[in-house]
Design a binder for these strands. Structure first.
Lengths: 196, 196
DNA sequence: CGAGCGCTTGATTGAGTTCAAAAATCGTGG
DNA sequence: CCACGATTTTTGAACTCAATCAAGCGCTCG
């Protein structure tokens, strides 16, 4: 699984084998079963995860005990709580595995070494953060402006692969609606597509 | 106004006067009156703005003609559409001035030169992007999980200064509620604080 | 000083929630 | 491989929070 990570990094930076070896010397590989919790809300934790295989999610639990999915991370995605990772604050959310997964667990030292050793890693990081910001921006706009149906259609168009791998009730909480409402949205969409 | 910009940059990086001079050679200063539109939704535009004085906002207009504020930018904040700036896509939103403002207008060349000339600029940029991501993360969680009242109280706690400078109806659209609803939330909060 | 904008208030409506229960699907051990 | 319990999805009915529509008030700024 480390091979996949290396492949991913070398696709996005100009790191040589030696440089990668040096930087990645401290990372850990983990196999986690579906359901395994990797990070608990309110706890401080200094790891970020790269998903080599499988699917993770980040979610909060609010005062009423309701879950809200903040982020899905399939293969080749990063997942972690930046506020905990960089600022040592209590985590904003839980992270757990939706499928059996292979992950690379990374500490702050990885970034520190990367930044000093390889300028191209910085460029990659900046690109990644920009892309991420744009996606979050769009999500905020959807949450501010779109109806339940529009949000669902946007999700379907943007993440067709996740649709098959994530239970519907989790998608509902990602969209900011209840599972019951999502079921009704889908019913209504199906009705409109038959009645043509 | 360029002086303020320089001061800000040098507080956050280790750029020397010469380095700053070189990097900032292409930037433009602008004074804009309240109400001036700097960027229009759907248009592609390759500038980002640093607010030296005053207050800008970014907002979308949805299919029903309703405005939704995505971001407020007072002194020493950046504002711009990353998807337009970096990826040359049509902008997701409008940017205009809420107060008479002094701004520094920056093109892509500024970042390109910064990244090559000064490594400390990269570190600053990464830090900035991280902080930004964390804030957007928290906003998403609020929009997913919190009621109108909770969102307003969070806003008051987080941006007490903006409360006095931004019209109430704009704050409402930032929170994802209507101005009428915000008025009622405030009335209810006032009632509860008297009846003690 | 009056026209327009922002804020408030009231009455009504509506999108989505809640609570409850049935139907469908999944997964796991025998 | 099947059966049975658990989980997920669907459906129904009542309800609720916030939106909508409409009108009036009070500033301010032109």
């Amino acid at each position: 699984m480390l091979a996949r990570f290396k492949e991913y990094i070398q696709k996005n930076t100009t790191l040589s084998d030696e440089e990668f070896g040096h930087i990645a010397s401290g990372v850990q590989q983990k196999s986690v079963k579906k359901g395994t919790v990797l990070l608990k809300q309110e706890e401080q934790h200094s790891k970020t995860f790269f998903v080599a295989k499988g699917l993770l999610r980040a979610y909060t639990i609010d005062g009423n005990g309701k879950e809200h999915v903040v982020h899905f991370a399939p293969e080749n995605y990063w997942i972690g709580d930046r506020s905990s990772f960089y600022h040592h604050e209590p985590s904003l959310f839980f992270i757990d595995a939706i499928e059996d997964s292979e992950i690379i667990s990374i500490g702050l030292d990885f970034y520190e070494r990367s930044e000093s050793v390889a300028p191209s890693f910085n460029s990659y990081l900046i690109r990644l953060l920009h892309t991420n910001s744009i996606l979050m921006q769009k999500r905020i706009i959807m949450l501010l402006a779109a109806t339940a149906e529009e949000r669902y259609l946007d999700f379907v168009a943007r993440y067709p692969d996740l649709l098959l791998r994530v239970p519907q009730w989790m998608i509902a909480t990602y969209l900011g609606i209840t599972p019951e409402s999502l079921s009704r949205v889908r019913k209504e969409l199906a009705r409109r597509n038959f009645k043509r």
